[in-house]
Amino acid sequence: MHSLSVHHVTKNFRNRPVLTHVKFSCQTGEMVGIFGRNGSGKSTLLKILFGTLPADSIEVWLDATIIEPTQVIPNQYIAYLPQEGFLPKDMKVRDVIPLYFRDGEKQNQLFYAPKIASVANKRVSTLSHGELRYVEILLIAHLEHPFLLLDEPFSMIEPLYKDSIKELLSSLKAKKGIILTDHYYRDVLQITDKNLLMINGTLHEIKGKEDLAAHGYISS
């Protein structure tokens, strides 16, 4: 069991405050959804936590230890799905898998995962958006990192792949802590245990669709 706690995250862009003393936590076995309007700072928060964007202030606890966000990548604490596709476009899916996993057994798990046989011989550039997102999530899901950050995993995905992604994420919960952000709130609410809404640079806990409406994120 691992826990990730984030405190005092502050970030300004040219004197415009984007994040103001944000705090939240996630444990392995838990899935946390983060909602917020465009430009509210959701992706900024994920990038800060992954260590690819510096914060003005931040305190990150992994279990009982304070860690620097710059140590997240080299120590492989967190895997991250960015909004844009991150796989090399000219490679075939079957060639990407061994680059991520040297262990033959792990490779087999990937090659025999649902829906992979139909895309294994395709080049990344020829995958549909749903196929690409599914392959990307499958890859990072099988890494050993205890936490996953997913930026818009359901955005523009066809229903069949959306269901596969939801099944995959639910099956991962036993081993990992997952933090995801997406505007597709129905899909997120279906699988998350805890939900937060970003308003004016701070996170507010919400219980469901009604709270999203009450805070003006969706129409009532």
């Binding site: 690819t52 960015p82 090399p88």
Partner: peptide, 14 residues
């Protein structure tokens, strides 16, 4: 290809 940096970040390469 900036987003492809994440391909390496996820396997621990800074």
């Amino acid at each position: 290809q900036q987003s492809q940096y994440y391909f390496y970040y996820n396997i621990g390469i800074t």
